[in-house]
Every structure is written in structure tokens, then in C-alpha cells.
Design a protein around this nucleic acid. Structure first.
Length: 676
RNA sequence: GAUCCAUUAGCUCAGCUGGCAGAGCACUUGACUCUUAAUCAAGGGGUCCUGGGUUCGAUCCCCAGAUGGAUCACCA
């Protein structure tokens, strides 16, 4: 084997930790090399003829029999029979058999044909006919290898069943389990149908920012990102709601957006950190109008992909024929618990009722409205199997929704429940800016009380309302869950082509760090740089005046003369050097040099230390790092802020300039560990 | 985050009171002119997820960890 082949293999699988290339891969590489040497490198081919697909030929056999066709696809199985052979060719529609006789091709071509492997991509030209055993086939009268498959495919009979691998290598899953394509074809069809129906209803599709200054419109924790030029923290949106309502203020009247939202929360069979929603807003209607649109969209989408409104979902038989059942939240609670909340007026009574129902803990300290919601979730949701609109929600959990005139403690909001799970959420949109402002303030209080998911006040949005939002109905439907429902899929990962996965191979990253370190002689103690920290480009991006150790000229380094005065061991051990974790790090306003560190020193109390190293490090890059600090220095104020100790750096002079490196430790060392 | 289960050849899976690691498919070589999970013969292929511990000896027992799944919790 020559070096080229080695290299190409390494490029194929940089993440492969196995030192030896598999035998089967080597075989395939050898075959590719032989072709290359014969001037037959398949990777030079740019186009192939494909006049028909497999299913078209098989389903319209009478029309195709005896005719010449060209097909293209992947070899999925080979069966040799001496001087004839059979190949199953897979294209986007399915499989068709290729029949090859030894004398139908030139000698060399037949030899090369026999050398093809399962997984190779080919095109074949030939006559459609039926074999003696009755299989519709194409008589191979000429073929081309279009791409060599260098790795063996999963087994033909059992396929790929390991769910982890199926999600991580979806392309393999699609090749070996082509039936899953149907789910994704249906997904596409569902979204197309929604677009089509909304276009019929005269909605326009819009796009609003994913990068938000304030991630609003829902109760959820956002992802944080950073814009370099503006030096600005931005949040990935959790909902497009507040932008879409601004567009209604602007006069669009009917808008919708289908797009990704990002919520920094747990993952489960029903939750993926990024997920697709449709949100739509229509002026001059309310939540009743949204119920009609909801029914219409869900049933039409179901009809489009299933051809019926009676569907199976898990163990349930569902009927999605409109109109869906309608029940207020209080009616549902009365139905399933016998409790009539219209007769319960205050928080204390509600808490007492909760106690009687055995959910005292959940209801402790909660308001009447919150307890109503808890009752609904605890006792009602699971019973709502057939599609049902649950409407009129407590105001506490609906900060963007119009109050009910008849009972201002409740709001004009509904959610769609099917099989005990929520599929959509809609309101009569709150358009009184004064009320909205108060609700934001209420949310802010909840935030300050520790609810990280309470809405962040968006005063720019309130200002938009001050110009007048017409009465408006708004609706959001989770597309992923709708696709799950309409394709009878148990997990959200089954309807996402590339679900979010935890990365494999911490060990790989560690190995890379070690390798890099051995190339960097001067880095003995900063052992736990992130992988990205090691990349030159990232150093440049950070625009740091750090010395490039790779090019360090040791003759230019000056260090402070060693101290001549000795200290005794007792004195030494009085200095309390501790391992600390950087909980937060931010620039001190107006200061040129100072960074303010909030540190975990293992004691349980946060420690604040100011350090004048802004020239060397960016504050946010240090968050989460493990450092060394001396913790028993007297407190002193810097820029008016108290500093409780010092963070330890290595300092030296390099080419006349001061060089400084924080001592960054391995993250496995616990906070509070004392240095001796 | 909690509990349970899983991780063995490229894939699907066996296996072992703790004693040199097994099958089918796939791969290599040979036979075969209509097969279709083709067949027949021979052969190659392993970090038994990782790290510790117990042991004369660990894939197996114990502890810790990684990844995935399920259930629960959290979460529109």
C-alpha cells in the first residue's frame, strides 16, 4: 500500500481511534487504487444518466418491458452464480435487481464488475426484463462506477439497530433502513401543507431574528452566544412571538413563521434543545379564530400524509376530525376531580384543597391560579386522549395573554391536548401596553425570586404596543410533535434527522491536548486548555497580546531574580493557596486593567477577587476555569470594590514587555484544594 | 438529576461457578450460466466501552467513569 492510500484513509476517519485500518477497508482501498492506476478513478465522474427510478419501472412493468433504461444508485446486495450475477440496486424509490451475464460485458468490464463492493454507487444501462424466478430486473449492458464505498455497510438482514449510531450517523440509517425516509418525507409534506393552507388563508410567511438581545415570548432558559464586532452577548431565540406581534403592529394583519427555536433545557423523548415551531398571528380575531385554524391545520396535515383522519398513535386510536372537543380548564378540573374552583376564591383555600388532594408540596406558597394549573397538569392532562381544546388559563402563567372580561383572573388562552400531551398553544393577544408592562414587572419579580425561566421584560415590545396592536389571535404549534403524532413516532429523535447528541470521545480531545502539549515545550502547568484554545486561529480571534509559545525565543526572557531571604516552613504554611473555580468573570466598568472574578473556593461562600490582567485575558474566556488564588490576604478595595485575595500568575519579561500567564489547572482538581 | 437496562469482530448477536473468545451476515480465495437472507469449501478479522480493585488468572465478580435506551423528575 502506498502513502496516498494511507493519507486518504486518515482523511476518511479522523475520529477513528483504532490504530489499524480494518481489513475490509483496506480491500476496498486496494480496489480503488487499481482503478486509479488503470485511469478509471470513479471520483472524476461528474454526471450519470438516470432515466428511470426503481419503483417506476416495477410498477409500470408492462410499459417498460423490453425497453432500455438507465438507473443509478447504491449496490445493496450481490449474489454471484458463476457466470451470471445479481445485484440489488437501491435508489431513492427502492430497489431493483441488476442481472449481469459474463458475456454481456467486455472481459475487463466484467472483471471490474465482479470487483464491485456492497455500498458502491453505480449507474447501469440495459433492458428491462423478468428473470426465470419472476423478478423484474435490468439486463446489464453497460455500467459505470460513480463512487467507491470504502467502508463496509451494516449487515443486510438486521440492518443498523443501535439507536445511538442511527442518530449519530443518520446517513447510514437512511441507507440501511430506507423505510425511515417515509417519516421525513411526511415531515416535509406536513410543513408544505401548512404553508399551502396558510397561503390559501392569505397569510404571509416572514422571518424574524434568531439572535435576540432579549429572548422573550416564552418561559425557558436561552442559549447564549457572542457577537465579536459588537462585543455583545446575544441569545438564541426561544420564541418568535414578540417579533411577530410587532409585525401585526406594523400592519401585516396575517403573518406566520416556521422556524427553529432554542431552549436550554433538558432532553427527553419529547424535547430537543432545538425544535421547530410554527407561530401565526392574525389581526381582528381572537382565540376562537385560532381554534378554527388549529383544527383546520392539524386535520389537513393529517389528511395530506395519512389519507385519513383516523390514526393510530402508540396504543391509541385517534380521530382528528374537526371540530375538536372544547373544555375550559376549570371544567376539566371539575370533571376529573370534582372540585369547582369557581367557588374557591383565595390562595389559602386553594392550598388547603391541594393538601386534601395530596399535592400539598406542589402547591406550597402558590397562588390560586398557579394551583389551578397544577391541578390541571396533575389530574386532567393524562385523560385528554382525543384532541381537545382546553381554554381559559389562569393569568399567572399567561403573561402575554388578554384577560377575560368576565373574570380578570383568567385569560383567553387555549392549548391543544392529544394523548395527554400538548400540541399547540394560542391566545387572544394582550394588547394593552399598560397591562403588558405590569405583567413584565410581575415576571421580573418571579425572576428575582429565583425563577430562571420567567419572561424577561422587553420594553421595546411594550413601546410597540403603545402604538397600538389591534385585537389579535396568535397560535403556536410544535412541528416536531405534530410530525410525531402524524407518523406514530415515539421519540422526537425519530422525526429529527440530526437530533442533538452528546459528543463522543472525551478521550479523543484529551489525547489531542496531550499531543499539542508535547509540541509546546513551555506549557507544563496550563494543562487543561480547551481544544479550541490550542488552535492558532482562536488565539488570533481573541486578539490577545499573548506570546506565541510555539515561537518563543528563550533568550529574550527575563525573570525576576530569585529571592535571597528565606522564610521558615511555619511562615510559608500560613499562606493559604487554594484551588478556585471561576464562577463568573467580568470586566470592571471604567477600569483599564481590572477583571472581577467570582470564585468558588470550596467554602460554600463566593469569593470576589479583582485582578489587573485585562490586557492578557478576556473575561468570558476564563469562566469555568480552575485557577490558584491566595485567600488569606487582608481585604482591600480596588476601584471601590473589595478584593479578597490574589489570583496567582506566572510573570516574566519578554523582549522588554511584561508577559503573564494565569496558572490554569486541570478541571478535575476540586475547588478548595489546598496547595502545599 | 434519580433508578433500571445495555455496551463482545464492520453489522446483528451468543457466551463464560473466573481458565487460550464464538455464530450468522460482511470480507478474502476457490467452485457454480436465473439468484434473491443464493449455495458449497477453505481462510482472515477482537482494547470483550474505559480506568481501578479482588484473584495465580477478569470479557465475566466489586468500585468508579463514559455513552446510549427506558421510566421518573424538570421542561409549554
Amino acid at each position: 500500500m502506498n502513502n496516498d492510500a494511507n493519507n486518504s484513509q486518515q482523511k476518511q476517519n479522523p475520529a477513528d481511534t483504532k490504530p489499524d485500518v480494518q481489513e475490509q477497508v483496506l480491500n476496498r482501498l486496494h480496489k480503488l487504487e487499481e482503478l486509479e492506476q488503470a485511469g478509471q478513478n470513479p471520483f472524476w465522474i461528474t454526471t450519470a444518466e438516470q432515466t428511470e427510478h426503481s419503483k417506476e419501472i416495477i410498477e409500470n412493468y408492462a410499459e417498460f418491458e423490453g425497453k432500455n433504461v438507465s438507473v443509478a444508485g447504491r449496490i445493496m446486495a450481490k449474489r454471484g452464480m458463476g457466470k451470471v450475477s445479481f445485484v440489488d440496486l437501491q435508489d431513492r424509490q427502492g430497489n431493483i435487481q441488476i442481472f449481469t451475464k459474463f458475456d454481456a460485458l467486455a472481459d475487463e468490464d466484467y472483471k471490474a464488475w465482479q470487483n464491485l463492493d456492497i455500498g458502491d454507487l453505480i449507474s447501469v444501462k440495459g433492458e428491462v426484463f423478468t428473470t426465470q424466478k419472476g423478478e423484474i430486473s435490468i439486463r446489464n449492458q453497460g455500467y459505470q462506477l460513480l463512487a467507491k464505498c470504502l467502508r463496509p455497510l451494516p449487515e443486510k438482514f438486521h440492518g443498523l439497530t443501535d439507536t445511538d449510531t442511527r442518530y449519530r450517523k443518520r446517513y447510514l440509517d437512511l441507507i440501511v433502513n430506507p423505510e425511515i425516509k417515509e417519516v421525513f418525507e411526511k415531515r416535509s409534506k406536513i410543513i408544505t401543507t401548512l404553508r399551502h393552507e396558510l397561503e390559501e388563508l392569505d397569510f404571509i410567511e416572514v422571518e424574524t431574528p434568531l439572535l435576540n438581545l432579549i429572548a422573550g415570548g416564552a418561559a425557558a432558559r436561552p442559549f447564549v452566544t457572542h457577537h465579536n464586532t459588537l462585543d455583545l452577548s446575544l441569545f438564541l431565540r426561544i420564541s418568535p412571538e414578540l417579533y411577530l406581534k410587532r409585525l401585526i403592529v406594523g400592519g401585516f394583519e396575517k403573518v406566520y413563521e416556521i422556524g427553529r427555536n432554542f431552549r436550554n433545557e433538558g432532553m427527553s423523548t419529547k424535547h430537543n434543545p432545538e425544535f421547530t415551531m410554527i407561530e401565526l398571528y392574525q389581526a381582528y380575531t381572537d382565540y376562537n379564530g385560532m381554534m378554527e385554524i388549529s383544527e383546520h391545520l392539524i386535520s389537513t396535515a393529517c389528511m395530506a400524509v395519512n389519507g385519513t383522519l383516523q390514526i393510530k398513535f402508540g396504543e391509541y386510536e385517534l380521530d382528528l376530525t374537526p371540530p375538536f372537543a372544547r373544555m375550559t380548564m376549570l371544567e376539566a378540573i371539575e370533571k376529573y376531580t370534582g372540585i369547582d374552583f369557581t367557588k374557591i376564591e383565595d390562595d389559602k383555600t386553594a392550598q388547603k384543597i391541594a393538601e386534601e388532594k395530596g399535592i400539598a408540596e406542589l402547591a406550597a406558597g402558590k397562588t390560586r391560579g398557579e394551583i389551578i394549573n397544577i391541578f390541571f397538569e396533575e389530574f386532567c392532562e393524562e385523560h385528554l386522549i382525543q384532541p381537545t381544546f382546553i381554554y381559559d388559563y389562569p393569568i399567572e402563567i399567561s403573561p402575554l395573554t388578554k384577560k377575560k372580561k368576565s373574570d380578570p383572573r383568567m385569560t383567553e388562552r387555549f392549548e391543544i391536548f392529544i394523548c395527554g400531551a400538548e400540541y399547540g398553544n394560542a391566545y387572544s393577544e394582550l394588547n394593552d401596553p399598560r397591562d403588558q408592562h405590569e405583567r413584565f414587572i410581575e415576571q421580573q419579580k418571579q425572576r428575582e425570586a429565583g425563577d430562571e425561566e420567567a419572561n424577561i421584560p422587553d420594553l421595546d415590545f411594550v413601546e410597540a404596543l403603545e402604538y397600538g396592536l389591534p385585537p389579535t389571535g396568535g397560535l403556536g404549534i410544535g412541528i416536531d410533535r405534530l410530525v410525531m403524532l402524524l407518523t406514530d413516532s415515539a421519540s422526537i429523535r425519530d422525526v429529527l434527522l440530526f437530533p442533538t447528541m452528546r459528543p463522543l470521545g472525551n478521550q479523543i480531545i484529551e489525547n489531542e491536548v496531550i499531543n499539542q502539549e508535547s509540541a509546546k515545550p513551555f506549557d507544563s502547568i496550563t494543562t487543561n486548555l480547551d481544544k479550541t484554545d490550542l488552535e492558532q486561529t482562536d488565539l488570533e480571534k481573541n486578539d490577545l497580546e499573548k506570546i506565541d509559545f510555539g515561537k518563543l525565543d528563550f533568550s529574550k526572557i527575563k525573570i525576576e531574580p530569585l529571592f535571597e531571604d528565606m522564610v521558615d516552613f511555619e511562615t510559608f504554611s500560613k499562606s493559604d493557596f487554594r484551588v478556585v473555580k471561576v464562577l463568573n468573570c467580568e470586566e470592571v466598568p471604567k477600569s483599564k486593567k481590572l477583571l472581577k472574578f467570582t470564585l468558588d473556593d470550596g467554602s460554600g461562600n463566593d469569593r470576589t477577587i479583582l485582578s489587573g490582567i485585562k490586557d492578557y485575558y478576556k473575561a468570558e474566556d476564563l469562566i469555568g476555569k480552575t485557577l490558584i488564588a491566595i485567600t488569606n490576604l487582608p481585604e482591600r478595595k480596588m476601584m471601590g470594590l473589595p478584593s479578597q485575595g490574589m489570583i496567582i500568575s506566572a510573570v516574566y519579561e519578554y523582549d522588554g514587555e511584561e508577559g503573564l500567564d494565569l496558572l490554569i489547572l486541570d478541571d478535575d482538581i476540586p475547588a478548595g484544594a489546598k496547595l502545599y
